[in-house]
């Protein structure tokens, strides 16, 4: 427990902690393909598998951000390919509204994002991860994060 706590609380420690929800179909599929291809990415990324990206709500995202995660993202299937019709759309719209709220409250809207990935293409996952980290650094630099 303790080591991880210093991870987020220690200001000198720049190691980030990012929670990424990935859907069972394309999301984690892309991450797995990236793994098989030995594509490396920032070790800050921690993946949680969900059946569908539509299962992730604002509560889950806030729980991540208020319990040590610097950023939180959701990665689902490409639009039109959701195995449950439109779960990915619901997630995207949710996050859009949350971004607006963050901005109004004076925080950066780059801590949360919705992405799509393709199970057969690992780079669609690693590309998203890179984007997450870039936006997080920009948000941190602008002083708009929770931690």
């Amino acid at each position: 427990m303790s080591k991880a706590e210093t991870n987020s609380k220690n200001e000198n420690n720049t190691r980030r902690n990012v929670v990424v929800f990935m859907c069972d179909a394309c999301g984690q599929g892309a991450a797995k393909t990236a793994g098989v291809a030995r594509m490396t990415y920032d070790s800050a990324i921690r993946i949680i598998r969900v059946k569908c990206s539509g299962m992730v709500g604002p509560i889950q995202i806030m729980e991540a951000l208020t319990n040590g995660a610097d950023a939180c993202s959701v990665i689902g299937c490409c639009f039109g390919a959701c195995h449950f019709r439109n779960g990915n759309f619901l997630s995207m719209h949710r996050i859009k509204i949350m971004k607006k709220l963050f901005k109004e409250m004076g925080y950066s809207d780059q801590m949360i994002n919705h992405y799509t990935a393709r199970a057969a293409e690992g780079e669609t996952a690693t590309g998203d991860f890179e984007d997450i980290m870039e936006r997080l650094e920009a948000a941190k630099a602008a002083g708009g994060t929770f931690q």
Partner: peptide, 25 residues
């Protein structure tokens, strides 16, 4: 709530990854 992926269960998983305390901030 869906059995075996309830919101409190997802919360447990998040906490396991971030190491944050269980109390609400």
């Amino acid at each position: 709530q869906v059995i075996n992926s309830r919101e409190d269960e997802l919360r447990d998983e998040i906490l396991g990854l971030t190491g944050g305390s269980k109390a609400h901030v």
